[in-house]
Amino acid sequence: MYKLKNTNKSFGVIAIAIHWIVALAVFGLFGLGLYMVELTYYDTWYKGSLDLHKSIGLTLLLLLIFRLVWRVLNVQPISESTVNWQKLSVSAVHFLLHLLPFALLLSGYLISTADERPIEVFGLLSVPALPPLIDNQEDIAGLVHETLAWGLIVLAGLHALAALKHHFIDKDQTLNRMLGRNKN
């Protein structure tokens, strides 16, 4: 009964899986990021946490690219929102929720590669660096990375609140659809 691809009314299994894995990765990376910068030099995780953060981040890039491809290949279920301003803000938020993770990954990449060192992904793969673009790139990219991270988390929080509002107040299928249990 589960379909791989989306229909006009429901999300397919692939889209649902991508959505929740990305959500987990985004909040996980945010938490890990906040945690690791507070670690001190003699914490066992001082080095490992950063390596893990970079590895998950770069792996997420592949999933984000696939998410875009999958979105283009699939129809989108028709929005449950009927009011114009809601439709407009939904489009804007969804656009940013797609864009911001890419910007975050790019800024993170630019921090660690500012010295032209590659980034190791789980010790299996080495992603090469580009030549540095600007002076003090690690500082500027770092500031951008932190700011965008907070921005993305706030947006994702709003996105979650809106889903809960649809579920509990409007009592429509918005959240159920993303949980794979559309009742229509």
């Binding site: 921090i111 500012a114 060192r117 690690e138 500082d139």
Partner: peptide
């Protein structure tokens, strides 16, 4: 001070 360079971007940051 911001011209500090220890040949490792993460550490410099």
């Amino acid at each position: 001070t911001k011209s500090l360079d220890s040949n490792h971007a993460d550490r410099d940051k």
